[in-house]
């Protein structure tokens, strides 16, 4: 039987993949994908833990909200990336170092 532990393991794997993508990718869109992976890992956790709330389905409801939120965030993120690209003519985060002192 598939226990909650399996869900959590899958979720942790996705989360780790998201972290890896954020840290290691040389493309801002891939970082955005990494962020989406992390959000999805969290949503998976919500859904998994939703089995302990069979009356209100709080987990599932929250997952829907989070998906909408993630879509909005992606839209905002893509807009930022577009503006960054216009400004710097690149979306490689290694080359955008204006935050340096």
């Amino acid at each position: 039987m598939i226990s909650i532990t399996h869900f959590l393991i899958v979720s942790a794997c996705i989360f780790s993949l998201g972290i890896y993508a954020i840290l290691a990718k040389r493309n801002a869109i891939m970082i955005l994908v990494g962020i989406e992976l992390i959000i999805n890992a969290a949503i998976l956790n919500f859904v998994a833990f939703g089995r302990y709330d069979k009356i209100h389905y709080g987990g599932q409801v929250f997952a829907l909200f989070a998906m909408v939120l993630a879509a909005a965030a992606v839209a905002v993120g893509l807009a930022i990336i577009l503006n960054v690209y216009r400004h710097y003519r690149t979306i490689n985060p290694d080359q955008i170092t204006d935050l340096k002192d």
Partner: peptide
């Protein structure tokens, strides 16, 4: 000072 390199990913790594 080296930490303050302006690369968003390293900031994130530090925070993480």
């Amino acid at each position: 000072r080296q930490a303050q390199n302006g690369k968003i990913q390293s900031y994130f790594l530090a925070a993480f």
